[in-house]
Amino acid sequence: MTLKVEDLRVYYRTLKGDVKALDGVTFSLADGEIMGLAGESGSGKSTLGKSLIRLDGRMRHIGGSAELDGKDLPVGDTHAMNPFRFHEVSLIPQYAMSAMNPTRKIGRMVDELLRSRGVAPMRQELERRVGLVGLSADVLDRYPIELSGGMKQRMVMVISTLLNPSLLIADEVTSALDVSSQKAVAKTLLEFRDRDLVKSMIVVTHDISLVYQIADTIMVMYAGKLAEKATADVIVSAPRHPYTQALISSLPEVGVRYEERRLQGIPGRPPSLLDPPKGCRFRSRCPLAFERCAEEPPFAEVAPGHSVACWKAV
């Protein structure tokens, strides 16, 4: 087991009160597992990713724990997390590409980054890995602006996995790319796992048909909680949670036109995380809701490797 997360709760402090963005999630990640993480916008996916790396100033670790390769991850303690970050867990944040320092050549930027982490430059290995993702070594002598989005994104992946972390969290790394670059980037992720450069991965994305291509499992979040986790095939073909079902059936088939047939999103809005309702958080939008849903459903295993938080599924 690479990663074990137990009842993790992380809130954001705001003037209006705590935003309960991650409100008790429990799951684990096997060695070699690539897990896609999907869900409603604002449901806490990036918060989960950030929690395993670094809590920013306003984030508070309310409870729960995480364990990486059998060692306790000190999630609440920014300082104690230092030795893990980048060495053991690495995160590629949403829009990392545009955050690359534009005034430094890429090779130099990497050297500086390594030095700041107390690691000696490793040009040879860097060049080897650049080759691995299909780029030529001379990109290291170029500025970020001279690379296309797809090239930059692959470069970001090389950098963040240079020290062979156990866990890589990729937060929407393909969302700004065209379909053919998406394919190249997704295949690179797979390659990294297959070559043991990283042990397991969490790939946050809204492009479910893309992550379906490379993920072993898919986990779905809704309003700060887990809705469902299962193998990619089960999530896509036989999901049990009503939210997952609605999400999957929102994916348009190629060829539907607005003028001919209206696609339908899920009616309603997710609840506010400042003061989330008791019971199942999907209740106000759920077509199957019944009395029992006023009580919170547990995230329970309904079949081996398939967990669902819904009273209709247990």
Partner: peptide
């Protein structure tokens, strides 16, 4: 310019229907 890239499938549809 890529205004729906960070939205889930269902919200993408809402935004597209709005554009429609």
């Amino acid at each position: 310019d890529e205004i729906i890239s960070m939205l889930d499938a269902s919200t993408r549809i809402d935004v597209l229907n709005l554009l429609g």
